[in-house]
Design a protein around this nucleic acid. Sequence first.
DNA 1: ATGTATGCAAAACATTTGCACCTGG
DNA 2: CCAGGTGCAAATGTTTTGCATACAT
Lengths: 136, 136
Amino acid sequence: MESSDIKKAGLKVTLPRMKILQILEASEQRHMSAEDIYKALIEEGEEVGLATVYRVLTQFATAGLVVRHYFDGTSAVYELNRGEHHDHMVCLRTGKVVEFYDEIIEKRQLELASEYGFKIHDHSLILYGEFDETDE
Amino acid sequence: MESSDIKKAGLKVTLPRMKILQILEASEQRHMSAEDIYKALIEEGEEVGLATVYRVLTQFATAGLVVRHYFDGTSAVYELNRGEHHDHMVCLRTGKVVEFYDEIIEKRQLELASEYGFKIHDHSLILYGEFDETDE
DNA sequence: ATGTATGCAAAACATTTGCACCTGG
DNA sequence: CCAGGTGCAAATGTTTTGCATACAT
């Protein structure tokens, strides 16, 4: 359990916060919107406000417990920060998201930043397209 | 003049559309939000509705005349499609945006997609950070 | 003429905030 | 006990839409 993580972030270990972490851990879709998480909470019979979900996710993101992504312009999605950075392929047909990591791209980004006199805090690489229709 | 481009996109050549293209050409900040463009139009004394700006930008994006980016979660920005694809470095301090292109990264993306059985339609690479404070 | 475009106001979303009440340490 | 957290409703900011009017071809 990582109520310890919540504490480490300087936040009180409350029910909504623990539940939200649990949902992010348990969900097979690793990338969820605030609304997705809210619905999951409601389905579990939890009495949490949507505003709380947003507040908690923002706090978690600031604390580094979760990572926020903007795959499309309409809403943010959140995933648990499992420590290993990665980028994403997003299927425009099914919405499926696959994570990948590439050393060459990572290194090249640093080289480019250095060339431009730029210090990278963070980056976002998203490939939009579609997976072979061998499955769904 | 590229009223021809508007026509090629199957759109009527109207004043708002031409004005919006002009602004995107003329502006020294190559990346503008719908609101930015709307304000620029008003300053020029044009009578254009904000809704029209949104509609036209969406049509232009669909037609490939402009490219839409989501640098932050709060609003989309648009830039003229000048034909050469590039990615972006965004300064978190000043908002400055610098474009770059790297053959190695581009190629590597294709290789990775191929490995994953993924066909790339489009991609977005954004580096967030800050430029050296030698200037502003 | 006539199908498209436009402007305006209203609607639709995603997200944030104010405030009175609740709760964890 | 009491600072911090929560729920609710209202506010905010961005983008979309319905509709009556205006315009390009």
